[in-house]
């Protein structure tokens, strides 16, 4: 069985001398939830665009479900991988919510009757069925991102990338979209999920964390392992998750907290026991 994503010796540069992605190799299993962190300019977004064939690699290979990412396979690639971008406005293509959800379906030449059903189904899934006729300027940032997510989900891709999908939203919008992501993940366990984020708490909840630094993979592994060495994490300007901070602090006081505890709710339950 082939892997969902396989990247081999990938290199990319926008300008001649500045290499943005430096010889990256990794693979992702089907159904895995991977968070990709690293600060601005570390190459996260470039990597996501390479995966979707929105940029062409200088050298190296990418395989999605065993299919090579290249010009002649571009139509196939689009059917495997979908991406939700950062700016809610600049990915809202249709004039209304329903038109925007339908946009990808129109490109796939889905017949109109089927399209109508799909649009309604996915609008309901993201809780936007009451806003079908609304124009983007009548919606909040969070609502626009919901529509973008519906648009991607309706295409039934096997791999979905969230490229800092919450970074331009207010706290309410962030919570909203994070909740939606969790629900989606629960409903579609087979979906391979790549989330590019600055939110280390989200990273801590995922199956696997890849930290990029200056175009290279700095760390790759389970969240507990990746965040274990806090000095190394701090060195490249990242923080460690709150729960882990508490765990570390209490460990020095010989209070051991089990690894399964991942959020403050469980943590406080444990401490009050």
């Amino acid at each position: 069985m082939s892997k969902a994503i396989e990247v081999k010796n990938l290199c990319f540069s926008y300008e001649k001398d500045v290499q943005k992605i430096k010889n990256i190799s990794f693979s992702v299993e089907k159904g895995e939830y991977v968070t990709l962190i690293g600060h601005n300019g570390s190459g996260k977004s470039t990597l996501s665009k390479l995966l979707c064939y929105l940029l062409e690699a200088d050298s190296g290979e990418i395989y999605l479900n065993g299919i090579k990412v290249c010009e002649e396979n571009s139509a196939k690639i689009r059917k495997i991988i979908g991406i939700v971008f950062q700016n809610p406005d600049n990915q809202f293509i249709g004039s209304t919510v329903e038109n925007d959800i339908a946009f990808g379906l129109e490109n796939r030449r889905v017949p109109r009757e089927e399209m109508k059903e799909l649009v309604l189904k996915y609008a309901q899934k993201v809780g936007m069925e009451k806003y079908l006729k609304k124009a983007p300027d009548e919606l909040s940032g969070g609502q626009k991102q919901r529509v973008a997510i519906a648009g991607i989900l309706s295409l039934n891709n096997e791999i979905v990338i969230f490229d800092e999908a919450t970074s331009m939203l207010d706290p309410e919008g962030v919570e909203d979209i994070k909740r939606l992501i969790r629900e989606t993940k629960r409903e579609h366990p087979d979906l391979t999920f790549i989330s590019i984020t600055h939110d280390i708490e989200e990273a801590y909840m995922s199956d696997r964390v890849i930290i990029l630094n200056k175009g290279e993979i700095y760390k790759d592994g389970k969240p507990e392992e990746v965040f274990k060495d806090k000095d190394e994490i701090r060195k490249i300007g990242l923080d460690i998750p709150f729960v882990l901070k508490v765990k570390n602090a209490l460990k020095t006081k010989t209070l051991q907290i089990p690894d399964e505890i991942k959020n403050i709710d469980e943590l406080s339950d444990f401490l009050c026991k």
């Binding site: 665009k49 293509i93 379906l105 030449r109 889905v110 109508k116 991607i152 295409l155």
Partner: peptide, 17 residues
């Protein structure tokens, strides 16, 4: 980029919502 990622090809036939 967003249009491209959702499979838009200007000269291809599309259905219409």
């Amino acid at each position: 980029l967003a249009m491209n990622a959702r499979g838009y090809e200007p000269y291809e036939k599309r259905t219409s919502y």
